[in-house]
């Protein structure tokens, strides 16, 4: 039912890639969970590669647990309470992971000197965004904290289930390291009526920032969808890393990560069992 590609390339400007990506498909292929996170990479957020890896892990685990316990079966009816609890749980678990990591890996003398504000609130050094989706036969849940993009292709039309946040300019973003980050999560619950989307694309902001406007960026989703139909999955797998490198070199210069979820026909056996693929 689904085929997934997850790819990430490092910016030439960064010593290491601070983005993270992860997805999960259970054995019965009943659903898919995908997540990307963009560690901020600023001077203050010097452990954001760890923070982003924690973020995608926490999100995948939560969506899996909620799906297994059927929490979301009638989410649309009681959406508000459920999403608030989910946001709080993700935030709390991410904070716990960060604090455990800090306990085992205290700041080095060099890290202590980087920024006094961070020394007093060390969670900042792990700051990251988070985007994800739980895709089932009956509904899809999209989630976003901070910058980044989720595009959906249906019948050659591109939509954004979660609109761009006009408040986020000048590289500023909301972050899991905010004390009240749970209140900044945005969700969209989409019942599946008829067909699943042809393609769901999640990406860190390094992708959309590589284009002069949203129209030029949205062509990526349409092009991937057409390439999938015309050239197949292996063609995309073979080339995507080079495409992303070309994009960041001639565009934003940022780390760039994307996950593509393609719909396959019911009788297509192409879906490979791929569990727990991590950045």
């Amino acid at each position: 039912m689904w085929q997934i590609i997850a790819e990430s390339v490092k910016s030439a400007n960064h010593p290491l890639n601070q983005d993270a990506k992860k997805y999960f498909i259970p054995k019965d292929k009943e659903y898919v969970v995908v997540a990307v996170a963009d560690g901020h990479g600023s001077k203050k957020c010097f452990r954001s590669n760890v923070g982003s890896a924690f973020a995608v892990e926490v999100l995948i685990n939560n969506f899996r647990r909620h799906f297994s316990s059927n929490t979301f079966d009638n989410l649309q009816a009681g959406f508000s309470g459920t999403k608030d609890n989910l946001a709080k749980t993700i935030h709390r678990q991410w904070m716990e992971k960060v604090r455990n990591h800090l306990a085992k890996n205290p700041f080095s003398p060099e890290e202590e000197l980087i920024d006094e504000k961070v020394l007093n609130n060390q969670v900042i050094s792990y700051g990251t965004t988070l985007l994800g989706a739980l895709i089932t036969k009956n509904y899809i849940i999209y989630l976003q904290l901070g910058d980044g993009d989720i595009l959906v292709v249906n019948d050659n039309e591109v939509t954004r289930p979660i609109p761009k946040d006009e408040n986020l300019i000048a590289n500023e973003t909301y972050s899991l390291c905010d004390k009240e980050a749970y209140s900044l999560f945005r969700f969209y619950y989409q019942p599946v009526i008829g067909q699943l989307p042809d393609l769901i694309l999640l990406s860190t902001d390094g992708y959309s920032n590589s284009f002069p406007n949203d129209n030029e960026f949205q062509k990526t989703a349409l092009d991937y969808n057409n390439l999938y139909k015309e050239e197949g999955m292996s063609f995309i797998r073979k080339n995507i890393s080079g495409w992303l490198k070309d994009t960041t070199v001639h565009g934003s210069g940022d780390d760039l990560t994307t996950i593509l979820v393609f719909k396959t026909s019911e009788n297509e056996s192409a879906t490979k069992r791929e569990t727990d693929n991590t950045n």
Partner: peptide, 17 residues
């Protein structure tokens, strides 16, 4: 020129170190 993200700052100050 840096593309690095910064934490959103509600204060009326630039956010570039």
């Amino acid at each position: 020129s840096s593309p690095a993200s910064q934490l959103k700052d509600e204060k009326v100050t630039g956010n570039v170190p």
